[in-house]
């Protein structure tokens, strides 16, 4: 089974204060720590588990600057074989569709059975790249995948997609395919020091747009369908009802509201 996993380096905003930067089009990332996008971490694990069961290769791809090598190396340390990083100044301002074009250009020449992405990025939350990539590659896809079963001949797979309310939808599809992986599908491993040392010896192939046969106009803002105008902090809503009083009173009021709305 030859597999490709797409990973993204994202800022960890869960426990940090987030401020909009001077451009108004981004957040100030100078004080944030970075890591692999959570869903991508599960995608890496799924690919490596399949490789361990059935053999094959896992190729790791990321779009981003040199900092992204950290996330790529960690995926290699866990069992990835080769890696590509797409870096080009013209990529700035790309939406999910433009990112998918760059990824598709890199993946097209490879022999692959499954391409994995995370279902959703922690930073922009678009959930576009995986499905756009499948369309551009002209292969089947399934999004929000929480179960993958390779059928006996290795030419078909059965996938479980997570729907609302914990429902699972099962589909059978022919390979090759793109699967966007939902968190919780497996238990991502921790890289060992041995794996880290092996990964450090591997070369990460850096590809520019021209290496991929793409023109600058196909990516960035020019090649995107959606262009980010500006970020604004959420306006304090008028719908909010602030309960005041002693804790006993406010708790009683809250309980009454929840009951009234049928939420408990």
């Amino acid at each position: 089974m030859n597999m490709v996993v797409c990973v993204k380096r994202v800022p960890d905003t869960a426990e940090s204060e987030v401020h909009i930067d001077a451009s108004g089009k981004d957040i100030d990332k100078s004080k944030l720590s970075f890591g692999i996008n959570e869903a991508d971490n599960y995608a890496v694990e799924e690919a490596i588990q399949i490789k361990e069961r059935l053999g094959g290769t896992v190729n790791v791809i990321s779009v981003g600057g040199k900092d992204s090598d950290e996330q790529i190396r960690m995926a290699l340390a866990k069992g990835g074989d080769e890696a590509i990083r797409i870096e080009d100044p013209a990529m700035a301002g790309s939406d999910g569709f433009a990112i998918a074009k760059a990824l598709a250009a890199a993946i097209k020449g490879m022999e692959f059975d499954i391409v994995f992405t995370g279902a959703l990025a922690d930073d922009d939350g678009s959930a576009v790249v995986g499905v756009a990539l499948a369309e551009l590659l002209g292969v089947n896809h399934a999004a929000y995948v929480k179960k993958v079963e390779i059928l006996e001949d290795g030419k078909k797979i059965k996938v479980g997609r997570e729907l609302e309310g914990g429902l699972m939808e099962f589909l059978e599809m022919e390979l090759p395919a793109v699967l966007t992986i939902q968190t919780g599908i497996n238990e991502p491993r921790y890289a060992s020091f041995k794996g880290i040392k092996q990964a450090a010896k591997k070369e990460i192939a850096i590809k520019s747009l021209s290496d991929l046969g793409l023109d600058a106009s196909e990516v960035g803002e020019a090649g995107s369908w959606a262009v980010l105008e500006k970020f604004t902090p959420p306006v304090v809503g008028e719908m909010a009802e602030i309960l005041t009083g002693e804790p006993e009173e406010t708790a009683a009021k809250l309980a009454a509201i929840l009951k009234e709305k049928g939420l408990v």
């Binding site: 950290e70 340390a77 921790y190 890289a191 060992s192 020091f193 880290i196 040392k197």
Partner: peptide, 14 residues
């Protein structure tokens, strides 16, 4: 070295 810093991240997460 970079390998130690990568290892530090893994360990810290664990």
């Amino acid at each position: 070295q970079p390998v130690h810093e990568d290892f530090r991240k893994t360990l810290r997460e664990y």
